[in-house]
Design a protein around this nucleic acid. Structure first.
Lengths: 160, 160
DNA sequence: CCGACTCGGTTGCTTGATGCAACCTTGTGT
DNA sequence: ACACAAGGTTGCATCAAGCAACCGAGTCGG
């Protein structure tokens, strides 16, 4: 994305994309949901350029999607946590993931499965548990490597 | 977006974003759902540069998200229609729109409302009718200007 | 005490996507 | 004959993304 704004658009989709539509932004949010909270983790996991990652994290913090918390001092080191606003992107991410799975399927099946933490059931593209029918939010679900991924070793818990 | 690919990512979200994550792509899809099907309509509605619009439309057609159909010959003129794959992005768009409405609210309310065509009820962020409870798809819903938009005059029907 | 290493960045440079204006082609209106 | 429309394409300027090098604070090993 060049400039991140979409002038003259009154649509909420455009407004959402101004904030999370830049290249890498949504993947950073997804990675944070998967438990990658530190600069180095995110950089290695995504393969994004460090300056770009730095810029995105700053923007996401400004937009109140991530929160930068110190986890040690001297030297000061920080972790990035999702805020409620950031966690609330979960339905959109689920929908995108489901779309990707349906329309660009891996030969061996989806690379990642989302399951309902409480009952273990699979989660639909609308973020509803297909076993117990509950309407889920980010904290109710966690990710597991699916059949389409061999040994990529992503960590698995979805939480703040 | 610079390059539209996210190498070394096995995630379906990354795969989805490779296809629809470029600047303007999702807005083009949204506009097509709203009934803007021609080059000029899209260009005026979005304010996107013509060369970029041209490139995006080509890409979306290649990816089988849009279909280019002639609506007259001599001179040949075409319209862009959503395929099933394109229509299937509806849940993701709804989720993004709901997120935008919740977290960057307009003072007067959301600029656009999505309603269930059959019963007229409002549609939730998961694409479920809040009146009759039905799980909806793109063809079941249509858009209406909401209280947050005065006279921007977007057309209203969501259909292929 | 010295060097090597880690983490979390920042800086500079190069490449490539985007925005903008001008132009082109086919055809219609007057 | 001239202007105008639709649907693009082309060229150029600008800005963002990718990459590598560097930096500062601290830790570890010897």
């Amino acid at each position: 994305m060049l400039r991140s704004d979409y002038p003259d658009q009154v649509c909420s989709i455009a407004k959402a994309l101004e904030v999370v539509g830049e290249r890498w932004s949504l993947l950073i949010v997804r990675d944070t949901m998967l438990g990658n909270r530190r600069f180095g983790e995110l950089q290695r996991s995504l393969g994004v350029a460090r300056n770009v990652l730095s810029a995105r994290l700053q923007r996401l913090v400004e937009e109140d999607i991530l929160e930068r918390r110190p986890y040690q001092s001297s030297p000061e080191r920080h972790e990035y946590f999702l805020t409620e606003k950031g966690l609330d992107l979960w339905p959109a991410l689920i929908a995108l993931q489901a779309w990707g799975d349906r329309h660009s399927p891996e030969p061996d099946g989806p690379p990642m499965l989302i399951v309902h933490k409480q009952c273990g059931g699979p989660v639909s593209d609308r973020g509803v548990c297909e076993r117990c029918g509950e309407l889920l939010h980010a904290r109710d679900a966690c990710a597991r490597p699916g059949p389409g991924v061999a040994a990529h070793g992503l960590s698995a818990s979805t939480s703040a």
